[in-house]
Amino acid sequence: MNIEAVKSIYFFEMARTRRTLLQSVVSPVISTSLYFIVFGAAIGTRIQEIDGISYGAFITPGLMMLTLLTQCIGNGSFGIYFPKFTGTIYEVLSSPISMLEIVLGYVGAAATKGLMIGTIILITASLFVDLSIAHPFVMLFFFVLTAVTFSLFGFLIGIWAKDFEQLNLIPMLVIPPLVFLGGSFYSIDMLPPFWRAVSHFNPVLYLISGFRWSFFEISDVNPLASAAIILVFLALCMSALTWIFRTGYKLRS
């Protein structure tokens, strides 16, 4: 195991975060605060409580997930796409480093960054609303697993993407609708039966529901189903990655 190389990639990527501190940390904090003001303060005065939880608290896990998913996919994909784009990937490919170590470095850094920003959102949220976490370990389970899985997913997108448009396609166009329609801002019990049924096909619903359960013990779907969904998605990403390792897909001609 080439530990030095994993460390090099990891810290190199983390240094990039430091350089782009404003964009990567401040902007999610601002947008979260805006969500709290708009949804929490404005709508929250109309919707007092959902399942006995104040509206501001209710939306917090969904907001964390929204940021976590977009950040992890964004960072995971950019980390590997950028060297591909500039050509500096030659160096990684000609180093004594296995694909697994490359993934550890890039995905590890993307997940770390996502977790940092998720935590900042949690702290910001706690300034607006009273929060308690009923099952801290379950919360960490979902938090960390989601960060790792979606950073890995981002890494796959970064390898697949051949231009910036493709790179941004999924984080910009696919994730937000899934998150917004996945019960971030409401309980799906509030939907008409048809839309409630449709929502069950949205994997992000399971993520948000399970995550919310760890906070408040309320959920739209069984928390075990949530855990199963994220594990299945992780397994899918890992198999795709194994295939890429074997074939050198889009990395080695």
Binding site: N2, E4, K7, S8, F12, V92, S95, I97
Partner: peptide
Amino acid sequence: FSRGLHGK
């Protein structure tokens, strides 16, 4: 960075 990548 290059040195680290090569495991040194």
